[in-house]
Amino acid sequence: MTARKLSISVPPEVEATIKAAAAEEGKPVSAWLAEAAVEKAQIARLHAQGRAAARELVAEYESKHGKLPEESRQRVRQFIIKAGLLDNEP
């Protein structure tokens, strides 16, 4: 596999954290960062899929039973926020 060079800028405390974590796992910093980036991308993809599934379920419910009551909609929203699938934004 060929590798491409990237240049990133991080605050000194983040640099120290990265280097310590890579050393703890016995990996070069570049390998550790690449793995962390892949993990972050996978998590973001799963969260997007979770949000899409939640929207689909609500739409399916509403197509059969009418608009979801606002109280129920807010409970669903709070559950999704607690599950880490959505930021607490309007």
Rank of each mutant, 00 (worst) to 15 (best):
K5P: 06
K5G: 10
L6H: 06
L6T: 05
S7W: 06
I8T: 07
I8D: 02
I8G: 02
I8F: 03
I8Q: 05
S9P: 00
S9V: 11
S9W: 05
V10W: 06
P11K: 09
P11F: 03
E13V: 02
E13S: 00
E13W: 00
E13I: 00
V14T: 14
V14M: 11
E15K: 13
A16W: 00
T17P: 00
T17V: 05
T17L: 09
K19L: 07
A20R: 11
A20V: 04
A20N: 03
A21K: 08
A21Q: 08
A22W: 03
E25C: 05
E25G: 01
S30L: 02
W32A: 06
W32M: 03
A34W: 01
A36E: 02
A36I: 01
A36L: 08
A37F: 10
A37H: 06
A37P: 01
V38I: 15
V38G: 01
V38F: 08
V38L: 15
E39V: 10
A41C: 01
Q42S: 10
Q42D: 12
Q42W: 09
A44T: 09
A44H: 04
A44V: 08
R45C: 03
R45T: 13
R45M: 11
R45V: 12
R45S: 11
L46C: 03
L46M: 14
L46P: 00
A48R: 15
A48L: 11
A48I: 06
Q49D: 14
A52H: 13
A54T: 14
A54I: 14
R55D: 14
L57K: 10
A59S: 14
A59G: 08
E60A: 15
E60D: 15
Y61I: 08
E62P: 05
S63A: 15
K64N: 06
G66E: 09
G66W: 09
G66M: 08
K67G: 00
K67N: 02
L68P: 01
L68R: 02
P69S: 09
P69H: 10
E70T: 09
E71C: 00
S72Y: 10
S72A: 15
R73K: 11
Q74N: 04
R75T: 07
R77W: 04
Q78Y: 02
Q78A: 13
F79T: 15
F79Y: 12
I80F: 09
I81V: 15
I81P: 03
